[in-house]
Amino acid sequence: MKKLIIMCIFTLTFFLPCSNGFSDILRTWNMKTMFKPGSNCGYVFLLLFVAIISCTSHKKEIIMVSGSTTVLPVVSKAAEQFRLRHPDVNIVVNAGGSGVGINLLGGKKIQIAMVSRNVSQKEIEKYTDVLFVRHPIGRDAVVPVISSEIYNAGVKALTMAQIARIYKGEIRNWKEVSGPDREILAVDKEKARGTRHVFMEKVLGDKEAEAPGAGLVVGSNNEEQTAIAQSDAAIGMLSNAWINDDVKGLSIMLSDGDVIEPTLENIINDKFPITRDLLLITNGEPQGKVKEFINFIKSPEGQKIVEQSGYVSIHK
């Protein structure tokens, strides 16, 4: 309130005398001249209006969340429910990818980063004044996915080595892996995406490995899903929850001949080779409302959202 009065006084004393409408009033004592064309009194009142609005707007506590598009569906739904119970808190959830989330948290621009991989040593070294604290909220698998046309033509499982050779550009046609005679479109992801880190670490052995065989680079899970659904000969990497009828999840053939399907059971009992934790990361131990929000997601109710989104709950 004090701020408001100061702002009003400031605006009136400094800007009203500057407006020629005001000097006209002083001369003629006629209020109508104030809004004559050519009078700039309007601006002064606009300024006053802005000052009042900027001071009176009610202050809510804002929690900024950003990062992985894999974790996003869980957190945005949880934020909705959390807001219903705590009307004084506003939670802003943005996407961008795990790397973006960590960079923003490192720059102290957000309170919670959503991350679908581990924080790398490089990132820890880069932000020495930030203590990254992990809060696992669920489990997920990164599944190699292919266009439904190829899946229906008989390619149902590949070995890790075959997938690696596709991304290295050594296998370029589906017939080399007993599929139809079609060129492979390998869909890659942006380098800082969590899904790519996890996938490439297991497939090519290095989380930032280059993929010279890639024919397309996309960003979010949505974009990847669209690109693979639109093509009839594509392979890509997606979180387990994003697989659908157009985008089929491949089984992985292990070296001993076992074929592991990307099912929830195989993720729960850790048989599927490319699994990961879905994390929320804060700077130091969370306090106040941030802590309450994270605890809400870990609670049975929050874990229900995790399962509805297609991931595995931490309690399993």
Partner: peptide
């Protein structure tokens, strides 16, 4: 557009 947010400020 794709990479500016992924790179740490000042790197």
């Amino acid at each position: 557009g794709r990479e500016i947010a992924e790179s740490a400020f000042g790197s």
